[in-house]
Design a protein around this nucleic acid. Structure first.
Lengths: 193, 193
DNA sequence: CGAATTTCTTAATCTAGGTTATTTTTTTTA
DNA sequence: TAAAAAAAATAACCTAGATTAAGAAATTCG
């Protein structure tokens, strides 16, 4: 199995410039992992020691509330990072589950390696500082949307954010992302026509 | 008016170690600003060029939805950072308002200066990388809470997060933070006894 | 201090979205 | 390819929280 770093190097390139040697150094810290459809990469209660970059396929992170309902925090198609950052930085048991919505391939970056990289290659720390800022902004926007938009409006926002997923994802997953029951989502969609 | 850097240097100290020269360099980038009760630091539609550190008093950031309702994203008592990060990093008109809930004093860090600091003093970039990670984690948690908790439970979470504000803040502001109307908040509180 | 403004309370009524239950359709897997 | 499992649709009924309105209490500020 040949590891493909094209996608991650492209992501890096948008924010910092690495020479070939630095690129090689950066890539050497990843290991690759296949995740099958429905396979779990991280379970609630475990301590997460790594962050994942999706090379192929699609994952999701979600938490399960006390009534057993799933709330999806993020979908991660190819080119996206996904992790339980709380657990990674606190080194305590996490609250998120991460699993695959289709057969996928991820690059695994251990936090310990990431921290070594931050010291050896400050440009990598810059890259993560920038993508963390961007992620914070989009979480903030989602929070605002959840507080001020109705369910149909939140669905619209979902469609803009994940256009490639609208028709590949089961409705149930979309409902768990926008924060309604599958029954209501179904009713809502049929009204929309 | 003598500028006091004690609080911000303490915040830095929790994450990176600066020598005296570096501390002096870091502090030289701030300017200080008084913000009176109800005064606005940043209005929706403006391009934000700075991030604020609260030295004294308390600010809030909020957005106003299309029906005129305020949704509070953050309270920032002494020792907290506050900004419209979206506008700061994109250099586009922002969607947030920031104003003072009491007479306050903030330290102002221009984004242009911040970016210079990131280059001159990588430890500062590390500091911001870390506090941005922490902020992302707390936004994520708030998102989960909004999706899975009832209004009284969200009030409990608010009380744990901002214990010093429970009795100093008008109820109206707390309601706009947890995401209910002031009328419902009042009813909810009287039921809780 | 006193008038004006803002905030808080209470209560009746309304509604977006949840719950429960049943049937149909699609997907998975043996 | 058939049986089993999962997902989706539909419908009747329910509820947390919104809306509207009006009076009481607290703050603000001239």
């Amino acid at each position: 199995m040949t590891t493909n770093y094209r996608i991650i190097l492209n992501s890096i390139k948008k924010h910092v410039l690495l020479n070939e040697e630095e690129e090689a150094c950066f890539c050497s810290f990843f290991s690759q992992r296949k995740v099958k459809y429905k396979e779990t990469l991280l379970k609630e209660g475990e301590i997460a020691d790594a962050t994942f970059f999706v090379n192929e396929g699609c994952l999701r992170s979600y938490n399960i509330d006390e009534n057993g309902f799933e709330h999806i925090l993020q979908f991660a198609p190819s080119g996206w990072w996904i992790a339980d950052l709380y657990s990674v930085i606190s080194k305590r048991p996490g609250t998120l589950n991460i699993d695959a919505l289709e057969n996928s391939i991820v690059l695994v970056m251990l936090r310990s390696d990431q921290e070594r990289l931050f010291i050896e290659l400050p440009k990598i720390e810059r890259y993560f500082r920038i993508i963390t800022e961007n992620s914070l902004v989009s979480h903030r926007q989602r929070l605002i949307d959840n507080m001020s938009l109705s369910a149909p409006e939140r669905y619209e926002v979902f469609c803009k954010r994940y256009p490639e997923l609208i028709h590949t994802l089961p409705q149930k997953q979309i409902a768990a992302y926008i924060g309604v029951t599958p029954e209501f989502f179904s009713k809502m969609k049929s009204k929309m026509k």
